[in-house]
Computed example of a mutant assay.
Amino acid sequence: MLTRGLALLGAFGPARPAMTLSQLARHAGMPLSTAHRLLGELVEWGALERDDTGSYRIGLRLWELGALAPRGQGLRERALPFLEDLSQITRENVQLAVREGTEVVFVERIGGSGAVPVLTRVGGRFALTATGVGLVLLAHAPTEVQEDVLGGRIERFTERTVTDADELRRMLADVRVNGFSISDRQVTMDALSVGAPIQDERGQVVAAVSLVVRHGTASPHTLTPLVRTSARAITRALAEGYRAG
């Protein structure tokens, strides 16, 4: 029963924020009668809400629970002052992300005034192989995760997206040596991203921060010191939080 309930919740996504009973049953692969009964229970509990048209949406109860996730919320609270500083200094897009399996999950994003549009959103997932934060997180992921990602299909977003596994391995090695990543027009043809790692008290990379700017407006090596300084500040803030806890 729990598995079926989760299948209904998992049917929602950025492209499907609201669905009817029949749509949910189809995406979850279950009979209408079963879906109807489970949806009623999920609405009663608050995991889902039903609007005036009869469509279902994610409810506030799930948002409240999600806000308790320590890896996202605790990290966000410690990092936010430094993300805001970086955004104010540059007036560009600033992003904070963690790795979940073989994907990036964005914990926070601050959009600068007049900044280049980006495809990412808070709570959204993205490929590890293309973004600045993704390259950082993949470079410091366990070997089995790297091989799983590089051994599978590598999605292409633009003509500049690196999809060759050997080339990506060289890029990841550079990230580990240099302490930062550069994603040049790999996600959209008008954006460039520089990312840097955030570490926990044991020195393990647990997150990444990035600055996304319009391609051609700034040199990656001009942006790198700003991003790395922010990453080190967040790392120190996390360490202080661990000690205080």
Rank of each mutant, 00 (worst) to 15 (best):
T131K: 04
L8Y: 08
Y242G: 09
G54V: 12
I58W: 08
T222K: 09
M30V: 09
S181Q: 05
T222V: 12
A207D: 05
G46C: 10
Q23H: 09
S33Q: 14
F126E: 03
E167D: 14
L24E: 07
E103K: 08
G10I: 12
I198V: 09
A165R: 09
P14R: 15
P31V: 05
E100H: 07
Q23K: 13
P142S: 10
T235Q: 05
L32K: 09
S55A: 15
D200C: 14
A18V: 11
P14C: 11
L138Y: 01
G123L: 13
P81W: 06
I89Y: 01
T131F: 02
R160T: 03
Q186I: 02
R170A: 12
V206H: 08
D51H: 09
V194H: 01
V133R: 00
R76P: 04
A237C: 10
L39P: 10
Q73D: 07
V205W: 12
I234W: 05
D190Y: 00
E147V: 01
D184F: 09
A237S: 13
P117W: 06
G111Q: 14
Q95I: 15
G72L: 06
R121C: 06
S230W: 04
V205S: 09
R169Y: 03
A244Q: 10
L42K: 03
V149C: 04
L86R: 02
A237F: 10
D200S: 13
H215V: 12
R169I: 07
D85P: 00
M19C: 07
Q146A: 07
G179W: 06
G241S: 13
G5Y: 06
R121L: 10
L39A: 11
A218T: 14
V94E: 00
P81D: 08
H36F: 07
E155M: 06
L128F: 04
P31K: 08
E155V: 10
A196E: 03
D51I: 11
A191L: 04
E44M: 11
V118W: 07
L75T: 11
R214P: 02
V212N: 02
